[in-house]
Design a binder for these strands. Sequence first.
RNA 1: UCCUCAGUAGCUCAAUGGUAGAGCAUUCGGCUGUUAACCGAAGGGUUGUAGGUUCGAGUCCUACCUGAGGAGCCA
Length: 439
Amino acid sequence: MSATEYQRIRIAECAAHDGKKVEIAGWLYNLRRSGKICFPQVRDGSGVIQCTALKNTLPEELFEGLKHLTQESSVIVRGKLRAEARAPGGYEMEIEDATIVQKVPEEQPYPITPKDHGIEFLMDHRHLWLRSRRQHAVLGIRHEVIRAVRDYFDNNGFTLVDTPIFTPAACEGTTTLFEVNYFDEEKVFLTQSGQLYNEATAAAFGKVYTFGPTFRAEKSKTRRHLTEFWMVEPEMAYATLEDVKRVAEELICFVTGRVLERRKEELAVLERDVSKLQAIQAPFPRISYDEAVERLKKKGSEIEWGGDFGGTDETLLSEDFDRPVIVDRFPTAIKAFYFQPAPDRPDVVLGADVIAPEGYGEIVGGGQRIHDLDLLLKRLEEHQLPREAFEWYIDLRRYGTVPHAGFGMGIERFVTWMCGIDHLRETIAFPRMLYRTRP
RNA sequence: UCCUCAGUAGCUCAAUGGUAGAGCAUUCGGCUGUUAACCGAAGGGUUGUAGGUUCGAGUCCUACCUGAGGAGCCA
């Protein structure tokens, strides 16, 4: 029997090849064995399939080789595919031939066993942990989220214009930045937001977005923080706070719908309560910061008007709603210099945050930017920011300035929410956190 | 930076101040439908590090190291 009569397929395509002779190239996920029959489970990155190997139909060398395969050994199996109710996944291959590409040595077995492991051990073995079913599901959903985000903007007239990662100065003057030696003399910083550059490209293209990594040197050590994370930031010319709220709402509904539609299996692996995601429909409730503070006080929070929400406050707020809640008009004092003040109330700005349900916290933050030259200059001074570094940004108010607005959405927080998991670190292949930069 | 908790076999954990143990993983034996397979056996230990108290410390005390969760700050 030559190998050529078997068609190479991926496990995800099994349904289209029922009853056919196929070849699957992958890794041994798990193995159960009896005296004269064994059940190797093979994964190939697209799924997991159970195979059967029978002693009395295979050459002894092949049967013994399969029976003693170690976890994560690389193997190519060939045989006939059939629907089989007893097999997890619904399809099964009866092995007729196999090539063991590499057997993981018994004296140094694969470290991640099917039993429980602690988080330190798993994080140290992140390069291998990615092979597990659960991690595979999380990263599959991440991929879908990113694809849907890009589809949404691409289909709605936005142009992707990426912004630099090396930046000459603090964008916002608020958070701590990573400093990098740029050749011999100059110091530059890793970007904390592409927003200021987006304002320039929005004046060139009308509607733009940037999608890339973002760096924050905050010494935060919680389940909601990474030092390196991915953010999508749209920016629109001739737009207001109302446009920000509408676009954020549409985006969130579109992406959630896509995940529900295309990632049922992954959500099932994660045992995600999909009814919680099905509830994500427009319109989202909209409340003002003033009202949010009142609600929080009634719920026992110690927040006072003028303070920013803590993690607990966001959870308390989200408890009142079955879908994301939009909070707008924050105190001017706690927001970055570029926020447009409300025309009727200069003590609040035209900014909005979207807070996810189930305690997943802030997933979107943005608003309308200052378009008036004199006001911008005044704010830069109030925030004691070096005007020289912002000359190009000020230029945008000199040459055809218009009301404009945009927001940022943190991808990892969004994916954490979609997955219903409790820590951000599992939503990126190799998380960078305070005290962890390996592997 | 601060607060809290934890560190025992490769992994997950147990052990009243008195002989360091179990499950998983690995090896050997058994089983033709297993579903984190099961049954029997074997090998596997400087109890994070350094001091201290005690007749005796995995257990109590001190310092340090490492990790986790949280606060502040943020998406």
